[in-house]
């Protein structure tokens, strides 16, 4: 499994990338494959407070719903509103175009506690 090395990962298949002083959040390609055809994303509004380990939204396929878990605690600064317009494009590029939210973290060092690419790859292969 080839994974970008420029970001951190959660056990629940989100990625978090430090981008200056904000954190960009999305889900991994593995998660997208597991979900199958995505039909709906429920993302928070700008300004919402999110907490590390707690759901910030939901992602739905035809026959499953999964929580989207925030990797960090902070406030939502940006939401990728374009995703819902083209869910196939999102599924094609979950690493870059498919980012979901940008969070201003309370403590950027929270990222250090997450999995690195190798750690996540090992975890994903178990599953």
């Amino acid at each position: 499994m080839e994974l970008p090395n420029d970001r951190r990962y959660t056990q629940s298949h989100e990625w978090a990338k430090l981008d200056g002083d904000v954190v960009r959040v999305g889900i991994t390609e593995f998660a997208v494959e597991q979900l199958g055809d995505i039909i709906f994303l429920d993302l928070p509004e700008v300004g919402t407070a999110v907490r590390a380990g707690a759901a910030f939204g939901e992602i739905e396929s035809v026959k499953a719903v999964s929580d989207l878990i925030s990797p960090v605690t902070g406030e939502v600064r940006e939401v990728n509103e374009k995703l819902m317009d083209d869910l196939d494009a999102f599924a094609d590029d979950p690493w870059e175009a498919g980012w979901m939210i940008v969070v201003a973290p309370e403590d950027p060092s929270e990222l250090d506690g997450l999995l690195d690419a190798d750690g996540y790859a090992a975890k994903a292969e178990e599953a």
Binding site: I39, F40, E60, S61, V62, K63, A64, V65
Partner: peptide, 12 residues
């Protein structure tokens, strides 16, 4: 829109 329903979303 079955993701609203009990057989998928269960408690929620």
């Amino acid at each position: 829109l079955q993701t609203r329903e009990q057989h998928i979303r269960r408690a929620r």
